[in-house]
Design a protein around this nucleic acid. Structure first.
Lengths: 181, 181
DNA sequence: CATTACTTTCTGAATTTACTGAAACTTGAA
DNA sequence: TTCAAGTTTCAGTAAATTCAGAAAGTAATG
């Protein structure tokens, strides 16, 4: 069964964006394909649908599993493995976000921490440390904040998101209220 | 003037992370170097400090300018151009964030919009559209939300960030208050 | 308009990354 | 234990990216 033109366009787009989202073309395609396909697919289905080698699919599956984006299904009396997205769109976006934080932020945070522990030994290093301190604060804040967001219930999160420009007002509100205590 | 060992380590780290942040190694190094160096630097200074070719620096500068991460200074009676970071750390992070949104989200959003305008012509396409709709909503929300954040004053933003887990309470609070009206 | 001081563009080489297809491996059933 | 259906690994190759250095461009100055 081959993809309709529109669906194919979407899958190819996912491929092109793949590398921008943190993986490579093939893996982007696989991910897109599994998302828009209702039924779980076997590795061979995937290879056929995308016209790529079986081996490539196998590597891609491993990678998608390491991102926790897909899960395996089994059909009784059938030895093949069937793959499907690991959750709702929202969950998947969260996973990607988390994983990227791990790769894009955490290593830098740890380097900066180490560096800031040492005493600067001259003016040049002093300035550098000041700047690194700024970056460090920023990344720490982002990290803390993102883990807070993950902790919220979906409906709380939804409310927060819908709040939009109201967010400013709510902050001021909170300010007034807690000042009284 | 060459970099101290610690500063060099930071610059090299920026290089390694470069591709994860959306540019390439050299450009990451250049960016890191300019951030920790107090005085603006000429293209030649940069080439020397990083031991890379002059041509490569030129390309890197162009790219950093397209990200709006650096600005040019001129010294009276000196024909050279001096480069320095375009703003505070916070501004630069914002720029990177914005730029990445443009590259990683906007193209997909526009593809999805187009696709959702068409009527699905069979069950398979109907399911695909449902999924694309979900992605579309998610991306729209993220987009709207991020532009809201940019609109907040720095101190409001700071309060919000510091709020941490308190955010849940504030949402509930807001709920109660506005329900009464 | 020629020179000087500087910047940008371009080409091909080097490096890195991604992909194929075949071989090796795994697992369950007979 | 052997076979068959399936999966994974890996060596070699193809493709994409990055880079140095040379050539071309630009603009101020005399």
């Amino acid at each position: 069964m081959s993809l309709s033109e529109k669906n194919l366009a979407f899958v190819m787009h996912c491929g092109e964006m793949g590398s921008r989202w943190g993986f490579n073309r093939t893996i982007g395609q696989m991910c897109g394909l599994l998302i828009i396909t209702k039924e779980p697919m076997t590795a061979n289905d995937i290879a056929d649908a995308l016209s790529i080698s079986r081996g490539n699919v196998s590597m891609g599956i491993k990678e998608l599993q390491s991102w926790q984006l897909i899960k395996v299904h089994h059909v009784p009396g059938d030895r093949k493995e069937y793959y499907a997205p690991a959750g709702e769109i929202w969950d998947m976006a969260n996973r990607v976000f988390e994983e990227r934080k791990k790769r894009e932020i955490d290593p830098t945070l740890s380097l900066l921490r180490d560096n800031l522990l040492d005493e600067a030994s001259n003016e040049e290093e002093r300035y550098a440390q000041k700047q690194m301190g700024e970056i460090h604060n920023l990344l720490e804040t982002v990290t803390k904040w993102s883990s807070e967001l993950q902790r919220l219930s979906p409906e709380q999160l939804n409310k927060l998101m819908k709040l939009g420009s109201g967010i400013g007002k709510v902050i001021d509100l909170k300010d007034k209220i807690f000042k009284k205590e």
